[in-house]
Design a binder for these strands. Structure first.
Ligand code: FES
Ligand code: FES
Lengths: 152, 152
DNA sequence: ACTAAAAAAGATATTTTTATCTTGATTTAT
DNA sequence: ATAAATCAAGATAAAAATATCTTTTTTAGT
């Protein structure tokens, strides 16, 4: 559904939302390590997200990435839109050129409600609301520890 | 979500289910034309589907592709499994290595029901049931005519 | 000033997906 | 038998996504 790039982006931003702020920046190395994503690829991605004002960065020693107050007010949808483009959730599941209630493809009424629901969920909550929820309901951004645990 | 190849495959098979049988085979050219898919790519794909026993073909004049009785009894899921692999609908939406209720990612409870419902829909109906439904409820496999209409 | 840390920028490489092209094999109809 | 139609098979190409590498710029701390 989403590209790898987009998945990395969402998890990185949620990670930054949870663990960084203006006074506590985090470097690519750390982020890539925690989220188990390819480091140089993530670096490029964060570069792009910074340019798009979805994350904030500073250079130099003690520099790194963090979410500003403004960044926290964006939505997951803003990320998807930026990385995978604005049509990610209004395309036909079977590849027709349009997805509409008139001329529905055979799976339209199965797929469309979910696309709409996911879209709504992604659009109507801010990153910071999302991350509060992550804390409250104990969600995970990486299975690093879990995987490590399993190996024992 | 699904690869182009898989979308083409599903639409082709539904098309064959609707319009072909043992006595009325249809060639790649016709199918590609009707569904507006790249012809040589579809040819390769149908070749693979034939090898996988999801469609049936015969060579020579009046040859072409059709769905045998056995082919009609397969499900959409069989197609997806064959083209995009068996893990298409149990992967984490955010790219975690596992998607399970324990250790859910932040969007798990939004995305997982969707994946399950689609999976169920794709697995529990045969191709022929699907195509009956297509006729009864007037679904479309291509927007060819619709698009042409719009241009006027 | 100097050094080291860190991101930014740009170039390159690899892999996967999508697509096409060419040749060969099979079958039907004449 | 021969010719024409049609799929099969294999080779190749093009495009997109994923990933890496190298160099430059900025900045904090000494
Ligand atoms: S038309 Fe296919 S999903 Fe809406
Ligand atoms: S864990 Fe991410 S979708 Fe289930």
């Amino acid at each position: 559904m989403l590209s790898n790039a987009c998945k990395y982006a969402i998890r990185s931003i949620l990670y930054l939302s949870l663990y960084s702020d203006k006074t506590k920046k985090i470097g690519v190395k750390k982020i890539a390590d925690e989220l188990e994503t390819p480091q140089p690829f993530l670096a490029k991605l964060l570069q792009q997200l910074t340019k798009s004002k979805l994350v904030t960065s500073t250079k130099g020693p003690n520099g790194g990435f963090y979410l500003s107050e403004a960044n926290q007010k964006n939505s997951i949808w803003d990320i998807v839109e930026n990385i995978d483009g604005p049509n990610k959730f209004n395309q036909c599941f079977l590849g027709l050129s349009k997805c509409e209630d008139e001329n529905p493809c055979p799976v339209h009424y199965i797929a469309a409600p979910f696309k709409n629901k996911i879209l709504a969920n992604f659009r109507d909550k801010t990153i910071s609301q999302f991350s509060s929820e992550i804390i409250d309901t104990d969600k995970v951004l990486s299975l690093k520890d879990y995987d490590a645990l399993k190996q024992e």
